[in-house]
Simulated scan of single mutants.
Amino acid sequence: MVSPPVTTTRQCHPGADSIHVVDPRYDGRWEQLTRSTTGSIFTSSPWIRAVCDTYGFEPRGTVATDVAGEPIAGLADVEIRDFRGVRISSLPFSDRADPVLRSSKAWIPLASGLVWSDAPFTLRCLDGTPPAVDPMFRTEHRAAWHGTSLTGSPADLFGRLHPSARRNVRVAGRNGVEISVSATLEAVREFHALHLDLRKRKYRLLAQPVEFFERIWTEFHREDGIVTMLAFIDGQPVAGALFLVWQDVAYYKFGASLASHLAARPNDALFWTAMQWASSRGLSSIDWGLSELDQPGLVAYKRKWASVERQILTIRSGNQLSDEGADVTRLLTELTRLLTQDDVPSRVTAMAGALLYRYFC
């Protein structure tokens, strides 16, 4: 049984009555904030629990409340101490973790109530949000973000897609691509096998362990908030996607496919199935997540499905990572290259991911 989290309250700040330091995995005020329209999957308590319970992190939530005790702003972060040095992240392994603000003015009392240090503090947020224009941060990286509004009928949605997306959906149908939609843990594990193979063979990267995916399933299955879609050709899984639901948004979090079957357009069939599924659930939009700008093919692919495009900024305050930490980063990069060679058994690659992935944040 989980012990009740410890909550501390600090002095008042302009624009807020109190600043509280809470455990965002369990605190009711944090839950109330993140279930508002400005919260996202990545600041939700279930997501934070899945990440932190997998990697042994202790998250910290800073919540500003008004005179009536109602939460008006919050930011979650994790202090990481390992052989790469001390650093603070909001939040590890998340596309973004924008502060949850009832209004843009709420950033001022929230920021003044945060515990600042010289350690590197990294935050990922959408462009145009208050921290993105705050002079205390410097922008160190930019990535693309895409979203799709689900207003209208399925015919309306299909008609708004890029012509090449509509064409590829039809190609997938002619090639016998079949899509399964499942909320089971077994489907998550089947998807992870595809995910592991893609990360290793295409990107030469390690994958997060299957235990992380299992924890995600445990957290979101409780609220019917996770679905795995798999594309089959002649009974073989050739592509997959994992979607999470928070509030009225479907989040495309992970995707994978076999290069040998891309000509059959299984990913287009998956995306179109996801749009129909989300629309049938009455969801308002799909968040297609982060895409690196140095992967123009992926950015262009998501543009075919999206109705809006913005940027996710990685912003930072405090010192740079120490020289020793930079040396460790280079070592991890070289180890990753060695452990993702074709002659390394996938079982070994998976074990390496389980051992090392927590240090990639």
Rank of each mutant, 00 (worst) to 15 (best):
S317M: 00
A350T: 04
A111M: 06
F191D: 06
T228S: 03
R170L: 08
D323I: 08
M136S: 09
T349D: 05
D248M: 06
W305K: 08
S90C: 12
P345Q: 15
K304M: 07
V133Y: 05
L313F: 05
V299Q: 09
R189P: 04
W217I: 02
G240F: 07
V344W: 11
T273E: 14
Y252S: 11
L332T: 02
R316P: 08
S291V: 10
A64E: 05
H192N: 13
S117A: 10
G61K: 09
P99D: 09
S280D: 15
A250R: 07
P46R: 05
Y26L: 14
R310F: 00
S260A: 14
S44P: 01
G282R: 12
L242S: 08
W277F: 07
R174C: 04
F57P: 06
L205A: 14
S94F: 06
E292T: 11
S280H: 02
S260H: 08
L230M: 01
R174T: 07
A16K: 12
A350K: 14
W305Y: 08
Q295D: 13
R310Q: 13
T314G: 09
L332I: 01
R25V: 02
F121R: 09
Q320C: 03
A274F: 07
R337M: 04
S307V: 01
L290H: 14
A241H: 10
V177Q: 05
D287A: 11
G176P: 13
F83R: 00
D53L: 09
D17Y: 12
D95L: 04
P109Y: 00
T139N: 07
R138V: 15
R337N: 14
L91M: 14
I48G: 11
D82A: 00
P46E: 04
V210C: 11
L150N: 06
F254P: 02
R60W: 02
M229A: 02
S182R: 06
V348H: 06
Y203F: 15
L110V: 11
A97N: 01
P92K: 01
L258W: 00
R29N: 06
S117P: 00
R84A: 07
A68E: 13
I19Q: 10
M1F: 08
S153P: 10
L91G: 08
L110M: 12
R142P: 00
L198G: 11
T54G: 02
D197N: 11
R124L: 10
R265K: 13
Q295I: 00
L321W: 02
P92M: 01
R347T: 12
W30M: 14
V348Y: 01
P92L: 05
P296V: 00
D268E: 13
V100G: 08
V67I: 02
I286D: 03
N168P: 06
R189G: 09
W116A: 11
R138H: 03
A16T: 06
W217P: 06
M351T: 01
R281Y: 09
